[in-house]
């Protein structure tokens, strides 16, 4: 290595090392401190490796998991169902936009694209959902509001366009219907794109608290992230979640930490396995046309 390469690499190690450290540090603190005793948190701050190890908060959560488990159920349900429906409808629409025989395909593409350029704003949106579509406090609101993303549809369209037109056309000549061509030929051929876009969509559902805050007052149907938000903003609620009668005994801070870890756990556990799909997805979106 030449001298300038050495200095470049030293610079790189310092810079990337620092940025990497700053990003991972809060995660380590969050996980580490959730195992610390309330006493340690209050007197010494939040440690990465707890000096006074304690499982009290996790014990509290797992001994009365009712509400957390319920919120988990809601989140898993909307994530799985929402992602599957979103992927199917998005790719089906994307397929239509790629077919040359569809004379108005450009107009249709602009019809959905225009919604990213202009919107009526939150006030009419809220009123339409609540008093026109009557979706307030309905599970459908949690499913439908975050369901489609115009960029994802266009990325799928660009991906499908790489499949030679001769393929569906040959199938048409063989007498296959368009819907059949889509489900039997195009869907299986676009698995890599579907995997990436599907994971992006699933992440949106998993992390969505906004829809619930706007449209879901029924506690039984509130997803995990919104429950977590409410817990973090109110200690009383935290006590209520673990069925604790008194506030005095409650390890407030460590309970909040443990609840945060419990609700983020699946993402952290899955992260090493799914990261590459997300990287691929970003590259898919970055390649224009």
């Amino acid at each position: 290595m030449s001298a300038d390469e050495v200095s470049f690499n030293v610079l790189g190690y310092v810079f990337l090392g620092l940025v990497g450290l700053v990003t991972i540090y809060p995660f380590l603190v969050l996980i580490g401190s959730s195992f610390a005793s309330e006493h340690e948190l209050i007197t010494k701050g939040y440690p990465i490796i707890p000096a006074e190890f304690s499982l009290k908060s996790y014990g509290l959560i797992f001994s009365s998991p009712g509400k957390i488990a319920r919120a988990y159920g809601v989140t898993i349900f909307i994530t799985v169902v929402g992602t599957l429906v979103s992927l199917f409808v998005s790719s089906m629409s994307a397929y239509v936009l790629t077919r040359r025989s569809v004379k108005y395909r450009r107009k249709l593409a602009f019809f959905i694209y225009f919604t990213t350029l202009f919107s009526g704003g939150l006030a009419p949106y809220y009123i339409v959902i609540v008093s026109v579509l009557h979706l307030k406090n309905s599970m459908l609101a949690l499913l439908l509001v975050p369901m489609f993303n115009v960029m994802y549809i266009l990325i799928l369209k660009n991906y499908l366009r790489q499949i030679p037109d001769s393929l569906p056309e040959a199938a048409v000549i063989d007498g296959a219907g368009e819907f059949r061509i889509f489900t039997r030929i195009m869907l299986p051929m676009s698995k890599p794109a579907l995997a990436s876009i599907g994971l992006f969509t699933a992440l949106i559902y998993w992390n969505d608290w906004w829809t619930a805050m706007m449209f879901m007052d029924r506690e039984a149907l509130q997803p995990l992230q919104y429950l977590l938000y409410r817990i973090l903003s109110s200690v009383n609620l935290a006590a209520n979640i673990v069925n604790s009668a008194t506030l005095i005994d409650l390890p407030k801070e460590s309970l909040k930490l443990a609840l945060t870890v419990v609700s983020t756990g699946p993402i952290l556990l899955l992260y090493p396995f799914v990261q590459r799909f997300f990287v691929k997805g970003v590259a898919l979106g970055a390649v224009k046309e």
Binding site: M92, S93, F111, I112, T115, S119, G120, P124, I127, F148
Partner: peptide
């Protein structure tokens, strides 16, 4: 095959747009 997405954007984007 395009009807579902068209319907979605009509209800969740264009209808609120008229609400300006």
């Amino acid at each position: 095959m395009f009807v579902p997405i068209a319907l979605y954007f009509l209800l969740f984007a264009y209808l609120p747009m008229t609400g300006i």
